[in-house]
């Protein structure tokens, strides 16, 4: 699924002018930066933070959807949802691995998530009270995620770019899965159609917030663009998403909950209403509807899995003591 536009990173860096210029020249030549290459501390810090937030988002992102696995309306829906949630878990792992190449440990990142120190995408702090929410998440949230992640496949940092390529490849079914659910509901009974509209009403604005603060407010954007960590600004991506999504809503016969939304012939894009940035900030700060619940669920899973991790390590140590080198059949 996806990361927010980076939340609050410090890209300041103290290297010599000459070092920074040489690094920028490499980036400008579209050379990928690999783990042990020299890089500015600000570049490393920005990436650790962004990839970490992205990984946490994938992991926490399993919770709102996991909520519906046991109650999916048919076996077909259930296996698709299971596969999707399993993918999100896998995506989290690819991303943690990419962050680890920058010298941060998995344990450290996990601790930061569990303690509430690390951020993750604001979108996962909204509840999923109805089945239509699963459709809306696939359609809108994964749709917004894909919009954001496709340019990240060309990120200047090699391991992040490679992880994103895998993620994008796997994620292409997620959005279709969600839209199909919305389609079924929108073409169903009056009550089902209302359910679909209600989900769209609740997910539309939070989905737009996924792209992060508007360009005039986004302090780290310029440096990230210079270093080619990101390729498009938050507002550019948000605009692309709106332009792609409005016709999809029209096809469903649903109404986007924005009275100010209209096609602008001159810019060839949709003008849209003001986003409630106060809500966005509150959710990021921890005051969304589900923030506490999400952290509680992650902590519970971590604590209840402790004995498994300890047993696996104890078993590995015991075997290593018995047999100095484990022989693996490498064909």
């Amino acid at each position: 699924m996806y990361s927010q536009g980076l939340i609050g990173a410090d890209s300041s860096t103290t290297e010599s002018e000459e070092f920074l210029k040489a690094f920028q020249a490499r980036v400008d030549r579209e050379e990928k930066i690999e783990p042990n290459d020299p890089m500015p501390e600000g570049y490393r810090r920005t990436l650790v933070r962004q990839i970490g937030q992205h990984a946490h988002s994938e992991i926490v992102g399993m919770l709102p959807e996991g909520n519906w696995i046991t109650r999916a309306p048919s076996l077909r829906r259930k296996i698709a949802l299971l596969a999707k949630v399993q993918d999100e878990g896998g995506h989290g792992l690819y991303l943690y691995s990419a962050a680890e190449t920058l010298g941060v440990s998995r344990e450290q990142m996990t601790e930061e998530l569990l303690s509430g120190k690390a951020k993750y995408s604001s979108i996962f702090n909204y509840p999923t009270p109805t089945w239509a929410d699963i459709g809306a998440i696939g359609w809108l949230v994964d749709g917004a995620a894909i919009m954001n992640q496709i340019p990240l496949c060309r990120c200047s940092y090699g391991p992040y770019a490679r992880a994103m390529i895998r993620v994008c490849k796997e994620e292409s079914f997620h959005q279709r899965q969600g839209y199909e659910i919305m389609m079924t509901l929108a073409k169903g009974s009056e009550e089902q159609k209302e359910m679909a509209q209600d989900a769209l009403n609740r997910w539309w604005w939070p989905s737009l917030m996924m792209f992060g603060p508007s360009d005039s407010e986004s302090t780290n954007s310029d440096q990230s663009m210079m270093w080619k960590i990101k390729r498009f600004s938050n507002d550019e991506l948000r605009q692309k998403f709106i332009t792609a999504t409005v016709p999809q809503a029209e096809y469903l016969g649903l109404t986007i909950p924005d009275p100010d939304l209209r096609w602008n012939e001159k810019t060839q894009a949709y003008d849209h209403g003001e986003i409630d940035w106060a809500e966005f900030k509150a959710v990021i700060k921890g005051d969304g509807q589900m923030n506490r619940d999400r952290l509680r669920a992650r902590n519970k899973a971590w604590d209840e899995g402790a004995w498994v991790r300890e047993a696996a390590l104890a078993h590995a140590r015991k075997r290593a003591d018995m047999k100095p080198i484990a022989q693996e059949a490498a064909e």
């Binding site: 596969a83 993918d87 896998g90 690819y94 691995s97 998995r106 796997e170 991790r309 390590l313």
Partner: peptide
């Protein structure tokens, strides 16, 4: 294709199967 954490080789192979060969 990537990396992962595991206590030993048997668990590493199991996780690699789950994480890297879903398709």
């Amino acid at each position: 294709v990537g990396s992962l954490h595991a206590a030993d080789s048997a668990l590493a192979l199991q996780s690699a199967r789950d994480v890297y060969t879903r398709r």
